[in-house]
Design a binder for these strands. Structure first.
Lengths: 217, 217
DNA sequence: TTGATAACTAATCGGTGTCAAGATAGTGAT
DNA sequence: ATCACTATCTTGACACCGATTAGTTATCAA
């Protein structure tokens, strides 16, 4: 972009312009979220760590919710990446759906605080187009999976209720786990075996529902 | 407890002691949550509305998370009430489970902000026994429902994965809806028909899983 | 070189959670 | 009835936060 050591020849001084503050703010916020919590994120703290003053972030984000919306969007972007890769690696529609579910759960549970930012709408800016677009892409992955299954089974009808049921199940498991509710209630420390079971039940649910949509009304 | 107009004979003056500040704080917080949001709750505001000063709440709650834990516990208490009533009204184990699910969703969607407080562990005090007890009671309702179904079908084995899958599905739907994600993604404004469909699929999932636990493996 | 504009600083406002020290009211023993 | 004791509430403060305003500095285009 531009030479960061342009001013005050010779010795290295902080340049007046950061050069890439917007992305630095997003990365800084993500770092704090990963190490601590969303609650630990303040615009002042992020700015301080980067080395700019309180008001600097406001030249790149309208307010705190705008920054967190960008953080959430970034989370959805990696979710879409991982989900797309998982689907690409699956041979059959069935394998693809289960792989997508596992990618969803892995992503959520490996980055629990970031995952919460993605779904805490009170942290988001109203009508953030970037966020809506990329979260829509993520939803599209699931819609695609279920539609391929429908095609495979020759079913027809409205897939929306089934899609929402599937999303609810996976999202609910991720939410309960990242909040510590499941661990506290069951004493289980390893989420993966339980997730395998849940995804297996999801499979049977989707199949029996689609089969019912093939045969009768 | 004691006469609230004891001091300064005749005209009504504010008594130095509130008399029931603890419950007033909880009610005040719940009121703000119902009308606005958890984010709108501050100890100072609640105290102000009641007519006491900033520091007064600290004689009844260790900190803000302690107050919100009490609010969350109150939410679980009414959930247990409604859930118990729903189960009592159901004739068969099947009806009971669906009624419990609908009670869960109704309670969540009618009081979305309060519902979030119940499950936002970052708002809770660590190791709040009251909260853990009453949320455990709520979980017990679901465990009981599924165990009655197991008995009806003569199945045997570990019910935990199935229980978690059921909870995940209902909780996920409630979470997605109260965050506005479903409404935004689908354009649906009335949650009830969709909830009926989801609960119907939950039924079939639970039944097919329990039947598998009766026959083989 | 010169504006114009984007990026940043300095200073400030109202609000928050939390704490320490002091004032007041109720309670129980004598 | 008096006295000490304790729970309750107030006053005043600290550090932090989101956000705004006005001013400063760098960059870039003409």
């Amino acid at each position: 972009m531009h030479d960061e050591m342009a001013s005050r020849g010779g010795t290295s001084r902080k340049p007046y312009h950061h050069g890439n503050l917007r992305e630095a703010l997003i990365d800084g916020a993500i770092a704090i979220i990963a190490e601590q919590d969303v609650a630990a994120v303040s615009l002042r703290k992020v700015a301080r760590q980067i080395g700019v003053t309180n008001a600097a972030p406001y030249h790149h984000f309208e307010n705190k919710t705008a920054l967190l919306s960008a953080v959430a969007a970034e989370g959805f972007r990696t979710l879409v990446e991982r989900g797309t890769a998982a689907i690409a690696a699956g041979a059959t529609p069935r394998e693809q759906m289960t792989a997508l579910g596992m990618a969803y759960l892995s992503n959520a549970i490996e980055h629990p605080a970031h995952y919460q930012v993605m779904f805490r709408s009170d942290l988001h800016q109203a009508e953030c187009e970037e966020l809506e677009a990329v979260s829509g892409d993520a939803f599209g992955l699931l819609v695609g999976c279920i539609d391929r299954l429908r095609e495979e089974l020759g079913a027809q009808g409205d897939l929306l209720p089934l899609t929402l049921a599937a999303w609810s199940m996976v999202h609910g498991f991720a939410t309960l786990w990242t909040q510590g509710a499941l661990e506290k209630k069951t004493g289980i420390v390893d989420w993966k075996p339980m997730a395998d079971q849940v995804l297996r039940m999801l499979e049977t649910m989707v199949y029996s529902e689609l089969e019912a949509m093939r045969d009768g009304a």
